[in-house]
């Protein structure tokens, strides 16, 4: 791992228009991601966690420009991806790949495994045609699929194997950064553990950088170096793994951690139960977006939006909360 920033996201906003009225004009926006900045260093695994609708997947998709961002900059190795043309961006995706959640939906059912991998190589022109077959066999072996299965169709594989094919496809163009969007969420635990170990292995072998998007904090704790916690389109806390799990600062992070059912049956912890649901991202609450559900909210939280600020501690930790700010002052 180095301190060299591979990816730098600056003030990223992703608003989706809501059309309405007789003329189909834009009447409002879903503010899925609202002013998010962070960096990912080379060789690092950064995770984005949060519940449905917090904007974690939208952030991942915006980085690859699968949906063009509304505003903001995305620097990859110093180059702003937002300024690239469509065809330039397509070439750039050689370095940025994505693994999707659903291994059933993200593979073309009419292509064999070797065709799936070859298509990626063809588009990015990474390997001369005559060497491709050999490379495909190698890749599949790396992810744990035998050479005899190379001409099979996706439906002939189990869920875990299909996810391995998705990983092989991402690897086929020799990328630097892989966005894993809930890459292990659809898998059974015993298979999930296999795929997680594989991802870690591959990272060591190919010096990969991961942006890992997940709702499962157990998985996140296992795989990440740093963790970004999002709530309703905003980052509420960023910290290294140790600080986040041992000393979560934001009330939302604390509630999130305490809400997970634990298999540790001998030690029962106090649980923070949040009331109510996540508010709508169309018209998010003023001030701190979490104040409507926060057990510790006070006057200032409803009026003023907290900024992401570093807190002193042993490691790296930034929190957007008036409470930590006031206790510091």
């Amino acid at each position: 791992m180095s301190d060299q920033a591979l990816l730098e996201v600056k003030e990223l906003k992703q608003y989706f228009p809501i059309k309405g009225g007789v003329f189909g004009r834009t009447v409002n926006h879903v503010k899925a991601v609202d002013d998010v900045s962070f960096t990912v260093n080379e060789g690092e695994t950064v995770s984005i966690v949060g519940e449905s609708g917090c904007g974690k997947s939208t952030t991942g998709r915006a980085i690859l420009r699968l949906d063009n961002p509304y505003s903001g900059n995305i620097y990859f190795q110093g180059e702003d991806l937002v300024s690239l043309s469509k065809s330039q961006m397509r070439k750039k995706r050689k370095d940025l790949q994505i693994i999707f959640q659903d291994p059933y939906a993200s593979l073309n059912p009419r292509q064999t495994v070797s065709q799936i991998l070859e298509e990626a190589m063809e588009i990015q022109k990474v390997i001369p045609k005559k060497d491709r077959r050999k490379k495909i066999t190698e890749l599949l072996e790396t992810v744990g699929i035998g050479a005899h299965q190379i001409d099979r169709y996706p439906h002939e594989f189990s869920g875990g194997q299909r996810q391995r094919i998705g990983i092989a496809r991402a690897l086929s163009v020799d990328p630097k950064l892989i966005v894993c969007d809930e890459a292990v969420s659809a898998l059974d635990v015993s298979i999930q553990a296999q795929v997680l170990n594989l991802l870690k292995d591959l990272q060591r072998k190919f010096k990969l950088t991961y942006l890992f998007i997940s709702h499962d904090l157990g998985v996140v704790r296992h795989i990440s170096d740093r963790i970004i916690v999002m709530y309703l389109g905003k980052i509420v806390e960023v910290a290294d793994k140790k600080s986040l799990f041992n000393q979560p600062r934001h009330p939302y992070t604390q509630a999130l951690l305490s809400a997970i059912p634990s298999t540790n049956i001998t030690e029962r912890r106090e649980r923070i139960i949040l009331t109510g649901d996540v508010p709508s991202p169309i018209d998010p609450p003023a001030g701190c977006r979490f104040h409507t559900r926060c057990p510790l909210a006070f006057d200032r939280c409803a009026k003023e939006e907290p900024k992401l600020m570093s807190v002193s501690g042993s490691g790296y930790q930034q929190v957007a909360c008036h409470l930590t700010e006031e206790s510091k002052a």
Binding site: V189, L196, R221, I223, F245, T263, N264, R269
Partner: peptide
Amino acid sequence: SVPKHDED
């Protein structure tokens, strides 16, 4: 094989 959120 369950990754634990409350254990290193």
